[in-house]
Design a protein around this nucleic acid. Structure first.
Length: 957
RNA sequence: GCGAGCGUAGCUCAGCGGGAGAGCAUCGCCUUCACACGGCGAGGGUCGCAGGUUCAAUCCCUGCCGCUCGCACCA
């Protein structure tokens, strides 16, 4: 469906408000972009075009936007907008994650509030049943999914919404089943009974990563074990006493499941116990004393109890020594039948009772304080218990190896690079990945068990018969468990592009260009995407991994709801606009440091948005006046015609006659362009942001616009060239700033005259209409030919002059309204000409009455104040009469002299060292010598001035 | 314990081999025809501590102290 090329999609534009009011235009601007197809990517590149693709780290579908989202999406949007303007076929792919436990928990809470179950307890998902519960959860998802996506839109994210995905949509689900079946067939997925982490509250298995080791205050209980022979005969110590072993433990209740005690083989204290047995307190079980160098002799008593069913390290030791495994703690949080008299007790109750019984039998030696780590469930903060359970696992080593190589060989690069070390560390010591979860919300495991033969059938779709015994479908029951949410996330870069189908999008956009995310999910997500991507696509999923910092509150603490220190990005957007927030995050996104976000900073950048807003308004006032609107300065010449071929071409053509200040700002624009582009390309967005801030505020607004007021008032050709220069500079600046501040730049750009519609290469090829938008304007390229050293030097000198006079005024508290005459002397032949050329600029910016060469010595008496300058080389003279208190001026001169004298002393000290003059680069030595002379001259001039003042002061008093 | 990062102005941060900068906050002058979300000026820092390399160190190296984050088998 192609439309005529002559059609242009335009935005309805409004006159600029008095000041920057983001609420007035942000949402309508987003809507315009969206409706005009500005976010669309094409399945295929236009000839010569490159693709650029980022897949969004999918936020939880029922989540709300927090500062971390705001940061990652601002960074991604900035990169994406930059590449789009640079001509790439750009896809930023949106989507959300079903977030198994998190979402299920939310729905369960909602149900619990709704009513009571048959037993009078709050309703649980079991009261509803799986089918009804999933129905509820889908409904919940449909109701809440819009929130996070709308919030992403509020941020300005240029996501291609037409390609939005969800980890549980049909395509992703098909990809999940495909991957599961293939890995199963390759024997990289297996089902086994192993020790896993179990959350008794969530009632599900967890992966290692989902368990957070947390410091807890605990105790060390020292327990006495009697030592016997295998047949139960007591063993005596060499000294004749009954042999025993004291073991320190933090978890006495687990002794119910002990199947050995261990000592270090070379621990001389315990040599006599080798090959003996211990009597398990309370239960009386006879268990072996084993030796293993794993035991730390210095820690505790140097003896260790082994509970293979409830401790990961004990499980390893148990396997190594062939120990039996006794599960005494159940998934329901209670002691199992194996626990004998303690069966049915909750773990905490069991501990109390075990301790009481030990105490009663005098088997408890002592109790001491001990800081320990307890594994807590990442989602619910309750204790996660290691236990033996039958679960599905991914055999990870064969997948990890190529994933490590991809980073080693540089096929994937991390930035900052030091994260590679973290990645390697984890990947080289990786354990098999437990992927089954005892939840309902998620991808149900595509495995069916045969009632008949207990065989397992793994299949992409519901099987018709048992793969083992051939029994019919009615004999097959699907595994009730679902997969770890991260299992589907691992497929995100290719599943979202249509895999396992061989789609054009997959061809065009895989591997994706950049992955941008937080370092906290390197293991959860990044590593797993790399493994799955390489395995199924034969190609890495992305070439670069950019890891941003953590956003914290202004005190450096992690933002969390419970601490109440959360800064809500939506509140900031409502109050100050998306652009100031984006600019703040970008400016602070330097690498290697946490981002401590302060609202002050956002307000500061809001002022920045307002600044460029008003600079644009200034342009309009001047431009409209030139077009014959209301005359402010009263020097109307004909209207400014639209420059043929655009402002850039016009400037190129009139280059020879451009004023120094116009040449200067065009030169500075190139420097700024270079820095901004470099920052984007090297993932140093803060460099880009800072360069823009400096350029716009310090150079364009503080100096250029002030200079330009003179030719603008002058009218005629001078006005024309300044207006065209200003229009060009603003227009180019909007382009440079647009990736970071999309809304305000679009709004201001729309207001400019002479704008042209633009299109992307793929849209041109597809015959789609051009759009009048900044989004499609080409990103500026720095042009060295516009760099003008001479103009930069000229302006530098003007700035020195203006600053010197302003300093005199400020230090003496002279009101800006008071204009005074200034004289100068110079020994340079060039200076009088320079001052004459820039007479108007100096008078205007210094707000002085006149600037003339001092004539003869009589004026030397009258114009007592002295302001020496070295670049340009001159000395200003100002009469103090009626202007300044002489004593105040004496103070100022003395202060200045002190400063100069200190500098001079330092330079002389440096030059007096032969080591310096001999070994430092000659150019530097010359520079210091020149500086010495400069400072000495300056000091002499100040000194002469002070002498004149002293005479005056003496005469007055 | 191992690994990584950070310690620069009151606060938040840049700089990272030739005598330290910004924003906010503070003080003074100013409603000057783009902007008081503004302009001009000022004050404020032995750049965590101690050594070393260098003609020269906030910047490079080593050690220590402090904060943060990963990883780890200290029961």
């Amino acid at each position: 469906m192609s439309q005529s090329n002559s059609t242009i999609i335009e935005k309805k534009s409004n006159p600029l408000t008095k000041s920057f009011e983001p609420q007035a235009f942000e949402s309508s601007t987003y809507q315009f972009w969206s409706e005009s197809g500005c976010f669309d990517s094409s399945d295929t590149n236009a000839p010569g075009q490159q693709s650029f693709c980022i897949v969004i780290p999918p936020p939880n579908v029922t989540g709300v936007l927090h500062m971390g989202h705001a940061l990652t999406n601002t960074i991604q949007d900035t990169l994406v907008r930059w590449r789009r303007m640079s001509g790439d076929n750009t896809l930023w792919l949106p989507g959300t994650d079903h977030a198994g436990i998190a979402t299920q928990t939310q729905v369960e809470k909602a149900i619990a509030k709704e009513g009571k179950g048959p037993t009078g307890r709050p309703l649980t998902r079991h009261d509803l049943g799986r089918e009804k519960f999933l129905e509820r959860t889908w409904k919940w998802k449909d109701e809440h999914a819009g929130e996070i996506t709308n919030q992403l839109k509020r941020l300005g994210s240029s996501l291609d919404w037409k390609r939005e995905r969800f980890t549980m949509d049909e395509g992703c689900s098909a990809a999940v089943r495909e991957v599961f079946v293939r890995l199963y067939e390759e024997k990289l997925i297996y089902r086994g009974e192993r020790i896993i982490n179990w959350c008794c509250r969530c009632q599900t298995a967890l992966s290692d990563l989902e368990v957070i080791p947390t410091d807890r205050k605990g105790y060390f209980w020292h327990l006495r074990y009697k030592i016997v022979e295998k047949d139960g005969t007591p063993v005596k110590n060499p000294d004749g006493g009954a042999a025993e072993l004291v073991i320190a433990t933090t978890r006495p209740e687990t002794l119910l499941g002990d199947t050995a005690v261990a000592v270090h083989p070379e621990d001389e204290r315990y040599t006599h116990l080798h090959g003996k047995y211990a009597v398990l307190p309370l239960l009386g079980r006879i268990i072996p004393v084993i030796t293993d160098s794993y035991v730390e002799r210095e820690f505790g008593t140097g003896a260790l109890k082994i509970t293979p069913a409830h401790d990961f390290n004990d499980a390893d030791l148990g396997q190594k020594h062939g120990l039996p495994i006794i599960s005494v703690m159940g998934k329901d949080g209670k002691i199992t039948a194996e626990g004998g008299p303690y069966a049915g007790l909750k773990f905490t109750e069991a501990r109390e009772k075990v301790l009481a019984d030990l105490e009663a039998q005098s088997l408890l030696v002592k109790k001491e304080d001990h800081a320990q780590k307890v594994g807590l469930c990442q989602r619910c903060d309750s204790v996660a218990e290691p236990m033996i359970s039958k679960q599905w696992f991914v055999k990870i080593e064969p997948l990890a190896k190529p994933a490590v190589e991809a980073v080693e060989t540089g096929k994937i690069e991390f930035s900052p690079k030091n994260w590679e070390k973290t990645y390697f560390e984890w990947m080289r010591n990786i354990r098999d990945w437990c992927i089954s979860r005892q939840l309902w919300w998620g991808h149900q495991i595509p495995a069916w068990y045969c009632v008949n033969c207990e065989g397992v059938t793994v299949s992409r779709a519901a099987p018709e018969k048992c793969s083992a015994c051939g029994a019919g479908a009615s004999q097959l029951k699907q595994d009730e468990d679902v997969l770890d949410t991260w299992f589907s996330s691992a497929l995100w870069p290719f599943a979202t592009l249509g895999w396992p189908q061989k789609t054009a999008a997959l061809q065009t956009f895989y591997p994706t260009s950049i992955l941008e995310t937080g370092f906290d999910i390197i293991f959860f997500w990044v590593a797993r995407m790399i493994m799955m991507g390489i395995h199924f696509m034969d190609e890495v999923p992305f070439k670069k991994v950019y890891l941003h910092a953590m956003v914290r509150d202004e005190k450096g603490e992690k933002m969390s709801k419970s601490k109440g220190n959360v800064i809500d990005p939506l509140v900031l957007i409502n109050e100050h606009g998306a652009d100031p927030l984006r600019f703040t995050l970008t400016a602070m996104a330097g690498q290697g440091r946490d981002i401590k976000l302060s609202v002050d900073r956002v307000e500061g950048y809001r002022a920045f948005a307002n600044k460029i807003w008003n600079a644009t308004k200034f342009f309009h006032l001047q431009f409209e006046e030139a077009q014959g609107g209301p005359q402010v300065s009263g020097s109307a010449v004909g209207p400014i015609a639209e420059p043929e071929g655009g402002a850039a071409a016009w400037l190129q053509e009139h280059r020879g006659s451009l004023s120094p200040t116009n040449r200067w700002i065009l030169s500075r624009l190139q420097q700024c362009t270079t820095t901004v582009e470099k920052g984007f390309a090297q993932f140093e967005l803060n460099e880009s942001a800072n360069a823009l801030y400096e350029f716009v505020w310090r150079e364009v607004c503080d100096w250029y616009i002030e200079f330009s007021k003179i030719p603008l008032r002058q009218g005629g050709a001078a006005r024309e060239q300044s207006l065209i220069t200003l229009a060009h500079v603003l227009e180019q600046t909007f382009r440079l700033m647009h990736p970071i501040m999309p809304f305000v730049t679009e709004e201001l750009w729309q207001s400019l005259p002479w704008k042209k519609p633009a299109n992307t290469p793929a849209r041109v090829r597809d015959g789609k209409p051009a759009v009048m938008t900044l989004m499609f304007q080409s990103f500026p390229k720095a042009q060295d030919s516009w760099i003008d050293i001479k103009a930069e030097q000229t302006v530098r000198q003007l700035q020195n002059i203006v600053e010197a006079i302003r300093n005199f005024r400020g230090e003496n508290n002279i009101s800006p309204k008071v204009e005074f005459p200034v004289r100068y002397t110079t020994s340079s032949a060039a200076v009088p000409g320079f001052l004459a050329d820039h007479h108007a600029e100096i008078l205007a910016l210094c707000r002085i009455q006149s600037l003339e060469a001092a004539s003869g010595t009589s004026e030397g008496q009258e114009f007592q104040a002295v302001i020496p300058l070295s670049e340009p080389q001159l000395e200003f003279r100002i009469s103090l009469a009626g202007l300044v208190n002489v004593d105040e001026e004496v103070k100022r001169v003395k202060k200045e002299m002190e400063r100069v004298a200190a500098d001079l002393e330092f330079v002389r000290a440096k030059l007096s060292k032969e080591s310096f003059t001999a070994k430092a680069p000659p150019a530097l030595v010359d520079k210091e010598r020149a500086r010495e002379k400069e400072l000495a001259d300056k000091l002499a001039e100040l000194s002469a001035g002070l002498a004149r003042l002293a005479k005056l002061s003496g005469g007055q008093s």
